[in-house]
Amino acid sequence: MEQGTVKWFNAEKGSGFIERENGDDVFVHFSAIQGDGFKSLDEGQAVTFDVEEGQRGPQAANVQKA
């Protein structure tokens, strides 16, 4: 798993970007967020995640709040 920080997340659209510790920013969709309840992330929040190849390039998967 990688570690990173939420660069921004739009709760209305359900997507945003995570700033990786090593590498380019990666797209995140709300469906990749693990946990119960409303799936959203806050700017500056620390997260851990896997990276998968999506239709438009790398994207975060199995996102967990650190």
Rank of each mutant, 00 (worst) to 15 (best):
V6W: 00
K65M: 10
A32T: 04
V28C: 07
N10Y: 01
K13M: 11
E21T: 12
T48E: 07
G37H: 06
M1K: 15
S31Y: 03
E19N: 08
N62M: 04
E12I: 12
G4P: 00
P58H: 07
A66P: 07
G57P: 07
A32K: 07
F17C: 11
G37M: 05
N62I: 03
V51F: 06
F17S: 04
A11V: 13
E52G: 07
F38G: 05
E21G: 09
P58T: 10
F27K: 04
K65Q: 09
R20G: 06
G37N: 07
S15C: 15
Q59K: 09
I18P: 01
Q64W: 08
W8M: 03
Q34A: 11
T5Q: 06
G54C: 09
A66Q: 13
W8H: 05
K7Q: 04
M1Y: 11
W8K: 05
Q64V: 12
N62L: 05
G44M: 02
V63L: 05
F27R: 02
E2G: 07
E19L: 13
G54Q: 06
M1N: 12
V26S: 02
K39R: 11
E21N: 11
K13C: 14
L41K: 00
R20N: 05
D25I: 13
R56N: 12
D50I: 14
S15G: 07
Q64H: 13
Q3H: 15
E19Q: 14
E19D: 04
N10F: 00
G4R: 01
G54T: 14
D50H: 13
Q45D: 14
M1C: 12
F30V: 10
G14H: 01
E52F: 14
D42E: 15
P58L: 11
Q59T: 08
F17K: 03
S15T: 14
P58Q: 09
N22W: 10
I33Q: 02
D42L: 15
N22E: 08
T48F: 13
E12F: 12
V63G: 00
F27E: 05
T5G: 01
A46L: 14
S15K: 10
R20C: 07
N62G: 04
E19H: 13
F30D: 06
G37E: 06
I33R: 00
E53C: 14
E19A: 14
N10A: 05
E12A: 14
N22G: 10
F17N: 00
K7S: 03
F49P: 03
P58V: 09
A32W: 01
Q45A: 10
G35S: 10
E2V: 12
Q55K: 14
N22H: 11
G23L: 06
G44C: 10
D50R: 12
I33S: 04
G54E: 04
V51W: 06
G14E: 02
V6C: 07
G35E: 10
Q3R: 15
A32E: 07
S31I: 04
Q3F: 14
R56H: 13
G54M: 08
K7V: 04
N10C: 13
S15N: 10
A46M: 12
K7W: 00
V63I: 06
Q64R: 14
E12P: 02
A46Q: 12
Q3T: 13
E53T: 11
Q3P: 06
S40T: 15
H29D: 07
D24I: 12
G57D: 01
S31W: 06
A60G: 02
V47L: 03
T48K: 09
G23I: 03
V47T: 02
D25V: 12
A11R: 14
K13T: 14
G57R: 06
W8L: 01
F27I: 02
G44P: 01
G37P: 06
R56Y: 15
T5E: 06
Q45T: 10
P58K: 10
G35Y: 07
D50T: 14
D50N: 14
G14R: 01
Q59L: 07
H29A: 02
G37F: 06
S15Q: 15
G44T: 03
D25L: 15
G57W: 08
S15Y: 15
Q64C: 07
V63P: 02
E52T: 12
G37R: 01
F9R: 02
E19W: 12
E21R: 11
A11T: 12
G54R: 08
S31R: 09
D50W: 14
V47G: 00
G37T: 06
N22K: 10
A46C: 15
I33M: 04
Q59G: 03
Q55F: 13
A11L: 08
D25K: 09
E43M: 14
H29Y: 04
T5W: 15
T5P: 01
G54D: 06
V47E: 02
F38Y: 11
T48C: 13
F17Q: 05
F27N: 03
I18S: 01
G16D: 01
Q64G: 07
F9D: 06
L41H: 01
A66C: 12
Q45S: 08
N10E: 07
M1F: 11
V63M: 01
E52S: 09
S15M: 15
S15E: 12
V51I: 15
T48M: 11
G16W: 03
N22R: 10
R20K: 06
D50E: 14
V28D: 05
G44W: 03
V51H: 00
A61S: 11
K39F: 06
A61Y: 09
A61T: 13
E19G: 10
F30H: 08
R20W: 08
I33V: 07
E12V: 12
D36F: 11
S31Q: 08
A32S: 10
F38R: 06
G44N: 04
K65E: 07
F27S: 03
D36H: 12
V47Y: 00
S15A: 12
G14V: 02
K39G: 05
H29R: 03
V26E: 00
S31D: 06
E19V: 14
A46N: 10
Q3D: 06
E52D: 07
G37Y: 06
S31N: 07
D25Y: 14
F17R: 03
S15R: 10
H29Q: 05
D25S: 10
K65S: 09
D42V: 15
G54N: 08
D42I: 15
V51C: 06
K13G: 07
D24W: 08
Q34P: 06
Q34Y: 09
R20E: 02
F9W: 15
V51R: 00
V28E: 05
D42G: 11
F27V: 02
F9I: 04
S31M: 05
G23F: 05
G23V: 03
G44E: 01
E19P: 01
G4N: 00
D50Y: 15
A61E: 04
G23T: 03
I18T: 00
P58E: 05
Q45I: 08
V6N: 04
V28N: 02
F49K: 03
F17Y: 08
A46E: 10
N62Y: 01
E2Y: 15
S40M: 09
A60H: 02
T5D: 05
V47H: 00
D36G: 11
N22P: 06
V63D: 03
G57C: 04
R56M: 10
V26L: 12
Q45F: 04
Q45H: 09
L41R: 00
D25W: 14
